[in-house]
Amino acid sequence: MVHGESAGCCGPVETTAPISVTINPEARVNVARTGHRVESLTTGVWHTIEFPIVNTGYVTGLLVIDGDPVPGVELDLPVHELTGEPRQEGAFRVRFDVPTVVDVTLTFRAMGALGGLAIHSSLHLILRSSEHSGLSIVH
């Protein structure tokens, strides 16, 4: 008999970022909320949402973020180059045109592994903005 869980899998990511991206040893991408929140987002200003990329699959190539356009908010979703290193930092940017609340779905894909087949993960975000607004994130 073997005691306990197999090591090295699925533990929470240490970060103060609101979301984290993990790539497991089978190259499966998972994006998840971390429990940390981003404080206020101000209308008309670009805000950077950072996230760690924990890569236990040695996956290289592009990490692409897709999101359908949503009225009232602009998303700057850059392509990240996965280096295969155990941990990288990533980010995307958000800017509200008007004070509002929107629900945005983002899909993270690692294109270098198995051609992107089934190696993506989606997260939907509730983004709020006003003159003194806040952001909340839901997976």
Partner: peptide
């Protein structure tokens, strides 16, 4: 076969 879209990745 490799997995269909949306299905779990083939686990060796």
């Amino acid at each position: 076969a490799p997995p269909a879209p949306g299905q779990p990745v083939y686990s060796a």
